Simulated scan of single mutants.
Amino acid sequence: MTALNDRPEVRTPEQGGVPLTTEPRAPREAPGVPDATAPEFTPETDPLDVIRWALGAHPDLLMPSAFNLNGVVLLDLAARAGYRGEVVFVDTGYHFPETLQTKDRLAARYPEMTFVTLNEGANPEDGQTPPDLYASDPDACCAVRKVAPLQTHLREKKLSALLNGRSRDQAATRADIPFVETGGARVKINPLAHWTRERLEAYAAEHSLPVNPLYFDGFLSVGCWTCTRAVRPGEDARAGRWAGKGKTECGLWVGESKL
């Protein structure tokens, strides 16, 4: 694991760092297609009602998570709604220590769920990828270290739907996601689609949820330390992900290998 003081220095544009970046930073795909078989949820629908419907319609439901603010709130809501399935995290070998510690705290808080870590113990020198691939080809790095392990796990599970924490205000590229989304190999359930960051923060505070401490340092969306920086005033929540690299998503939700 890389120590915190070994991370690349985060510099402002004036100091020679990457320029301020707002979404979209890559071609936008067609908006998510609402599932016509789902109830007619409205923007005011309680996420608990969406999750409870999903548990009935898709008993094999599975939740991938990177334990960002949205994911932490979704975990708590899912527990209240009766979810007892897997929570799947992909260890790329480049996660911040705070992220791994947050995962452990959540696993202890929700023992009724099964926390699964794929590629557990991965590290930059494990031979999965060249050590500098994240810089030279971030798409390829994500494809090998994050997308492929999760896709393999999901194929083995043969499940019909995923429960995830994406919301519309995270980025312009997510502005159209519906509560229940078709397209790709599985139905995507997005209970937090209409919740704002302010509402998520209020919920987390009200329920004393263990939010990744990096969030309070401006890391509103936390991925690998190699490709994540703090968000600056005026930027959206995901502007710190792959900034300056023409990339907005890891490949789990968009592209040829989307879930």
Rank of each mutant, 00 (worst) to 15 (best):
R174M: 00
F89T: 15
G240S: 05
D236S: 02
L62V: 15
V180P: 10
D104T: 14
F216I: 03
P213C: 08
W195R: 11
F219H: 12
E40P: 05
L252G: 08
R168D: 10
T21K: 08
G218I: 05
E9D: 13
G93M: 08
P149Y: 12
A185P: 13
P178W: 04
P43Y: 11
A54H: 01
A107I: 02
R25Y: 07
M1A: 13
W53P: 12
L220A: 05
E14R: 14
H194M: 05
R186I: 11
L214V: 01
N5R: 09
D236K: 02
A193W: 01
N5E: 12
V144R: 15
D49I: 08
A108W: 09
A202T: 09
K245V: 03
L48K: 14
K103Y: 14
G183H: 04
T248W: 10
R11D: 00
R174F: 00
K247T: 01
E206H: 01
L55M: 03
T45H: 06
S136D: 08
V187D: 06
K157A: 15
A171T: 15
K146P: 07
E40I: 05
N212I: 12
Q170F: 02
L133S: 04
M113S: 12
T22S: 14
V88P: 01
W225M: 00
L200C: 07
A108K: 13
L61W: 11
P191V: 00
E98Y: 08
R7A: 09
N212G: 03
P24T: 14
R155F: 06
E86I: 05
Y83N: 00
N5V: 07
F41H: 06
G16T: 09
F216M: 01
S208T: 10
M63L: 14
E120L: 07
D35R: 07
L252M: 14
D126F: 08
E181Y: 06
N123T: 12
C142Q: 01
P149E: 09
F115L: 08
S257P: 03
V72R: 02
F179Q: 07
H194Q: 06
A26E: 15
G82T: 07
